[in-house]
Write a protein that binds this DNA or RNA. Structure first.
Lengths: 137, 137
DNA sequence: GTTTAAATGCAATAGTGTTGCAAATATAAC
DNA sequence: GTTATATTTGCAACACTATTGCATTTAAAC
């Protein structure tokens, strides 16, 4: 049984052709955030609605999470360790390369370093870095 | 001459009815990020295309900047001090209240606290905080 | 194999944002 | 105040992203 099949089974999701293909794609680039339109391209002729529903299902099950990289584009990335239980990912940072537009997860950081008035109750911190990635410099 | 009129003059932009109304709105809530659809509501019957073009013009002139608060919505806020020269705003943080959905600028922070592999050249840092704001708690 | 609940695919729809172009208008020159 | 002109506006049309309802298909359990 492949990783994708195992993952679906562990989430009690039915094994369908598209779900397996989408999962394979994410598992193939575990630290990259993939844009929805890019997924459509890579998958070829798929029903767009089904793809969107697949992504929503995966998000709800904590398989993938939306990535905030400072663009307004919808990008998803595979969840790791800390975010497998919920789709919410806390204190997580992403880096967007301004040259190649690739977005990658760069792991967690210490949110203690941010000071806010105590009247604000902060429950989630997302950091969007951008610049030039190692490949492009 | 009002603040809005002065601002337009200083940017060598023509004084039009819509521009003045939009500017007044932003100047009225100098630390809030306003969603485009919300602007449409508050302005009443305005031509949507003209509004979008107005926002783009203001953004290009460094009057307002796009705010990244972790939602995929387009929100703009007035530029202050550090971001008046460009539409790019650096090392800036915003706070989104999960209860009332208001987004406010919470000022700058120290980006030194983020550690990344040195092969990444970071030129821009955006921080999206979310939780409960003082009004809602 | 049969059953059934879940997933898919299609049609229709909504929201956001853009471009081209003719008409209107703000500013500057007279 | 009038006129000239470059800017701005408003409309039509379009593109992209995303969602909902519903009939059909299919995966998994029996």
């Amino acid at each position: 049984m492949t990783d994708s099949e195992n993952l679906l089974k562990s989430k009690k999701l039915r094994k369908t052709a598209l779900r397996l293909r989408v999962l394979d794609l994410f598992l193939g680039k575990p630290h990259s955030a993939v844009q929805t339109s890019r997924l459509e391209e890579e998958l070829g002729e798929v029903d767009r609605i089904t793809l969107y529903r697949t992504l929503k299902t995966f998000e709800k099950e904590g398989i993938i999470h939306k990535v905030m990289d400072g663009t307004q584009l919808t990008k998803y990335a595979l969840c790791h360790d800390t975010c497998t239980t919920h789709s919410v990912e806390e204190d997580h940072a992403h880096f967007l390369c301004e040259s190649c537009s690739e977005t990658i997860c760069v792991g967690n950081f210490d949110m203690q370093s941010i000071t806010l008035p105590p009247s604000y109750r902060v429950t989630k911190v997302q950091l969007a870095l951008s610049g030039i990635c190692p490949n492009c410099s």
